[in-house]
Design a binder for these strands. Structure first.
Length: 322
DNA sequence: CTTTAGACGAAGTATTA
DNA sequence: TAATAATTCGTCTAAAG
């Protein structure tokens, strides 16, 4: 049992294993929040935008075979846009190939021309695929009101997966949805499987499968969704005060520290923490409202709520002096 | 009457043998 | 692959307010 008053007056801290503790360089506060719509990291005390907390798609993101490595050496450009990349690619390819052809002897000339034509053909196919993917990416991100960073990350994920030949045989739109879902999690502004699935033609189950396919085949390391990442959006949707939202963060952190969150649905945790915080702060939302906003059931809220109450030693009957 | 608590089985998931 | 355990969900009943 934990001292409730102590917990409720403690400042929220984002302690988690996978992300570093961030301290605001301006005011020294550790109360750092993620702006849901802009995908920015902001100090809640002074409002300073700390940084664009981008996960570096460095070495661990890359899983090429030798072929891909060869292609990549030629095609790598530093733009996130699917379409911009294409024109650059063609331009370079043109220059290189033509230059070589003109100055080479005939034998290698034929060889190179054949190879060049082959590349143009496959390039057109790739072009069509990425163009369609880009259209779907625009549509989906717009519908889900995704921040720009998520869209760019999703584009990267899709393009790299595609170029690695991992998406063959799968519907373009479906794989774009999986990439968007993955990107939202990487950027720490996650949407639930249900939310993404509802904005597309595929089922939640199918989306989860495709997401797994991309993650496994590309060896991406995407940490599990954390309840606190879902909390701000939920809290806003429920029109809960800032104080309640921060209290909910504290509650979740405490629950996490007590190892009571493993294996539990992050949405359920976030929803019940907000539900409890709302009660404590006398701005209660009933279970039905919270459940609806979080896309879970009241049953789950009750389960988590009961656990949280036990953890915090909170009893609704004797909290009046709080 | 509305909200909350709890029980039960069904269904999907993760882990282990 | 199959069995097992833990979890969520839908539904129902009942208590609380």
């Amino acid at each position: 049992m934990i001292n409730l008053a102590k917990i409720l007056t403690k400042k929220p801290e984002f302690h988690d294993e996978t992300h570093e503790q961030i301290v605001c360089p301006n005011c020294g506060s550790t109360d750092i929040i993620t702006d849901e719509t802009r995908g920015e990291t902001i100090c809640s005390q002074c409002g300073l935008v700390i940084e664009d907390r981008m996960v570096d798609f460095g070495t661990e993101w890359r899983a090429y075979n030798q072929d891909e490595h060869d292609k990549r050496a030629r095609t790598e450009v530093s733009t996130y846009s699917l379409t911009n990349d294409l024109s650059t690619y063609i331009g370079r390819e043109n220059r290189d190939a033509l230059g070589q052809v003109i100055s080479s002897e005939k034998q290698s000339q034929f060889f190179r021309m054949r190879r060049w034509q082959f590349r143009i053909k496959s390039q057109e196919s790739k072009d069509r695929n990425l163009l369609k993917a880009n259209r779907e990416l625009d549509r989906l991100c717009s519908q889900l009101e995704m921040p720009r960073t998520v869209k760019e990350t999703a584009g990267q994920i899709y393009k790299k997966s595609f170029e690695a030949g991992m998406l063959k045989g799968y519907p373009i739109d479906s794989m774009v949805a999986a990439a968007v879902y993955a990107a939202a999690r990487v950027r720490r502004v996650p949407r639930t499987l249900d939310e993404v699935a509802d904005a597309t033609q595929i089922t939640k189950k199918r989306l989860a499968q495709l997401y797994r396919i991309i993650v496994n085949r590309m060896n991406y390391k995407i940490p599990p969704t954390k309840p606190t990442d879902l909390l701000l959006r939920l809290g806003t949707e429920l029109a809960l005060s800032n104080a309640s939202q921060r209290m909910a963060v504290t509650i979740i952190n405490e629950a996490t520290a007590q190892k009571l969150t493993i294996g539990k649905d992050p949405s359920g945790l976030a929803a019940s923490a907000l539900y409890l915080a709302g009660i404590i702060n006398k701005e209660k939302r009933n279970q039905q409202t919270v459940a609806k906003a979080a896309h879970i059931t009241e049953v789950t809220i009750r389960h988590r709520y009961k656990e949280l109450v036990a953890l915090l030693g909170y009893f609704p009957s004797n909290d009046e002096e709080m």
